[in-house]
Amino acid sequence: MIVKRITNVFFRYALRVITLLFAVSVIGFTLVSLSPVDPVQQYVLSVGSVSPEQRAELEDYWGLNDPPVERFENCLSAILHGDFGTSLLYRRPVIDVIREKFANTFALMLCAWVFSGVIGFILGCVMGANRDRAADKILKRICLLLCSVPTFWLGLLLLLLFSVWLGWFPIGFSSPIGVMNSDVTIWQQIHHLILPALTLSLLSFANVALHTRQKLIDVLESDYVLFAKARGESKRQIMKRHGYRNIIMPALTLQFASFAELFGGSVLAENVFSYPGLGSAVSAAGLNSDVPLLLGITLFSALFVFTGNMIANLLYGAIDPQIKESYANE
């Protein structure tokens, strides 16, 4: 029974991820084909002077003169064989570049994600429980302000304040300049991580806090909380018995569904802090016509966001009794 359910779920998600990645690759490929991005030009620039004949030969060799459908088929079959091509910018296989950059980005996003989730949830609870009091009003304004501030601007502001004026943090990169990669300590890495992570989390924690606040207010206005009150439960007991229980699920869903925003935010934050992650790699790839890398990262980010949403869905099934028991009855 349980095995059947798990295989069922597995196939359902497998089918979804395959169709999603196929759709993303079609759209990505079409957009790149239509855009003025010219991979040959980029390649030629790095090689040096090339005659028009050589250039035409190169285009022919790369298959740029084939019909688009054929080109897409070639591209797809290469990907299916595990070959994502070579990055024109880094001169290395795209897969290796993504792996290396993602390690950096992952540390950054994980910090920001945990930080914004935890702080956002706590602040949301504080605001919801003290609705319309001074604490709520002040925090709510701060959250609304943070929600409407652009990431890059906030990043610049933090950079100016903490790195330039106060000198507490480095102004960029993921490790100190002039130090061998193998000599970089974990503390130095964390030191470089703090400001970008803070920027990224400040962006999304306000969102989490405001959502949690609203959800808690809804719960506190519900009939069952009214009944709990009628049964003599104190405010604290109500929060403990009914409050957290009913807001944790939406908060978790929101948190996992925020992977997309996190990815988008990391592009901006990494650029401001010159942090060598996936976000800065993707903008570099776009600006320098590095088509293989651009498409590779596009596919990877789609997979990443899909994973976040899938975890949210599965969590719901595992935690929410209404869904859990209905699965069991299937």
Binding site: S222, D223, Y224, L226, F227, A228, K229, A230, R231, G232, E233, R241, H242, R245, N246, M249, D320, P321, Q322
Partner: peptide
Amino acid sequence: LRGRQIALVPQSVTYLDPLM
């Protein structure tokens, strides 16, 4: 008095916590 001296029987299922 609430819940100690006076008890209420509310009128619908919405007065029960859906997740408990």
